[in-house]
Simulated assay, not measured.
Amino acid sequence: MTANDLVADACTRIRQIDAMALHAMTEAPLLIDVREPGEFAAGHLPGAVNLPRGVLEFAIEAHPALACETSPTLADRSRHLVVYCLSGGRAALATDSLQRLGFRKVECLIGGFTGWTGAGLPVEGA
């Protein structure tokens, strides 16, 4: 099995959203950028938080942007999340992992940051 096989397998279990549909949403989900910190600093979607793929499963519970109202040490698993990376592979794997951790409303951005910028949509930090 290859990394691409793993991504393709994850894509059979996750929901995906394209850049234009995400941009058009009236209620913005929490955007999770799973790229490395240097990639994030070079440019990211407006309002995104950086949780690198390598630490996502370990750091998701403690991230303040995801805290439950009733328990600041637990992540709100009902919150709408959209996960992205550079092109979609890492985000697909991350989305699959988040679903397995019990997050119920999580989607993967089709084409990732590349798809977003290719559609001419705004970025921060660039």
Rank of each mutant, 00 (worst) to 15 (best):
M1P: 00
A3D: 05
A3H: 14
N4F: 11
D9A: 15
A10R: 07
T12M: 02
T12E: 09
R13S: 07
I14Y: 05
I17G: 05
I17S: 04
A19T: 10
A19Q: 13
M20E: 14
H23C: 08
A24I: 07
A24H: 04
M25I: 06
T26I: 10
T26S: 14
E27S: 13
A28T: 14
A28H: 15
P29G: 11
I32H: 05
D33P: 10
V34E: 09
V34W: 03
E36M: 14
P37M: 08
P37K: 11
P37W: 11
P37R: 12
G38N: 15
G38E: 15
F40E: 02
F40G: 06
A41I: 06
A41F: 10
G43D: 04
H44T: 12
H44R: 14
H44F: 09
L45A: 13
P46H: 13
P46Y: 12
G47M: 13
L51D: 04
L51N: 05
P52L: 08
V55D: 13
V55L: 12
L56F: 12
L56N: 11
E57V: 12
E57K: 13
A59I: 05
A59L: 09
A59G: 07
I60G: 10
I60K: 10
I60Y: 14
I60W: 12
E61V: 02
H63E: 15
P64V: 08
A65W: 07
L66T: 08
A67K: 04
A67G: 01
C68W: 00
E69T: 09
P72Q: 05
T73W: 07
T73R: 12
T73K: 11
L74P: 01
L74W: 04
A75C: 10
A75D: 09
A75W: 02
D76M: 03
R77H: 07
R77A: 04
S78D: 13
S78W: 03
R79Q: 14
R79N: 01
V82G: 03
V83P: 05
Y84H: 15
Y84W: 05
C85A: 08
L86M: 03
S87G: 06
G88I: 11
G88N: 09
G89N: 15
A91R: 01
A92N: 05
L93V: 04
L93S: 00
A94P: 09
D96G: 02
S97R: 12
S97F: 00
L98N: 03
G102A: 06
F103Y: 10
F103H: 06
R104T: 14
R104E: 11
R104Q: 13
C108T: 11
L109K: 06
G111Y: 06
G111V: 10
G112S: 07
W116T: 03
W116C: 02
W116E: 03
W116K: 01
T117F: 03
A119M: 08
A119R: 02
G120H: 02
L121I: 08
L121G: 03
P122R: 03
G125P: 00
G125R: 04
A126W: 00
A126E: 00
